[in-house]
């Protein structure tokens, strides 16, 4: 039988046997290459609900596969393997192993939201991409991305003090991603600032770095925010059937 769509055969599905005899016929070696089945034999019916439970994924079940999102996609124009329509389909049907195969592409969504405005059924594909990246991370398929580490350093500070001290965000980001703080561009930026900035502002910057002021009466806001964040995280972990926080 001729193979019409060779592109559909993944290298890992090609099998050669050094020594194999079937019914007395020698089928060893390259001339007797086998192709393993790629038939779908079951769906993971929980996958859509899991992604749908994470922020941004709520409307994934609406998709009818028109492809508007992929056609509108900024990243797809550069990398044809970045295909939101395809991933939404895999999730909706529960083809989990197929989805995980693309774990190193999915998170590259740049959140331009062109798909959001193109989608006729208001699926919010950008949100779905975000939820899917989140899902991959929570399930342990992917490492934390630098952007997530930055976001964490940023929001921890906001939750803690109600204010942002940029220097601290940067220091924590470089520390947590294992990069030296003495980035050439950062050194140039800081020396430039010191040379040109009025002394009064420099003093205020310095004081803020040392004393880390808080927004007045922040403790109640902080408690409320932390409670909410814990609530959402617990709900997310429950939806994905993961253990309570800390048991990853």
């Amino acid at each position: 039988m001729p193979i019409h769509e060779k592109s559909l055969i993944r290298p890992e599905n090609l099998v050669e046997h050094d020594e194999l005899v079937i019914d007395g016929v020698d089928v060893s070696g390259h001339w007797s290459t086998f192709i393993e089945t790629r038939a779908i034999s079951d769906y993971n019916e929980d996958l859509q609900d899991e992604i749908g439970a994470l922020g941004g994924g709520e409307n994934i079940h609406r998709c009818w596969q028109c492809g508007s999102c992929t056609n509108a996609c900024t990243v797809n124009a550069i990398n044809p393997d970045f295909n939101p329509r395809y991933w939404i389909y895999l999730i909706r049907l529960g083809m989990e192993s197929e989805l995980v195969r693309d774990k190193d592409i999915i998170w590259q969504c740049v959140s331009c939201n062109k798909c959001t405005y193109a989608c006729p059924r208001d699926v919010n594909p950008e949100g779905v991409m975000k939820a899917t990246a989140h899902w991959l991370e929570m399930k342990g398929h992917t490492e934390k991305k630098p952007s997530m580490i930055f976001d964490e350093a940023f929001s921890e500070q906001v939750f803690d003090t109600g204010k942002i001290e940029d220097g601290l965000v940067l220091r924590q980001f470089f520390q947590r991603t294992g990069q030296p703080l003495t980035q050439p561009w950062l050194v140039t930026l800081v020396t430039g600032l010191i040379k040109r900035f009025p002394v009064f502002y420099l003093m205020r910057l310095g004081l803020a770095t040392v004393f880390r002021p808080r927004t007045k009466g922040w403790s109640r806001a902080k408690a409320a925010i932390n409670e909410y964040v814990e609530e959402v995280e617990a709900a997310n972990r429950k939806a994905l059937k993961l253990d309570a926080k800390g048991a990853e």
Binding site: A39, I40, S41, D42
Partner: peptide, 12 residues
């Protein structure tokens, strides 16, 4: 065949 993902299916 699931024609949207070009994949044969065999499902109970």
């Amino acid at each position: 065949e699931d024609t949207l993902v070009k994949r044969p299916i065999s499902i109970p």
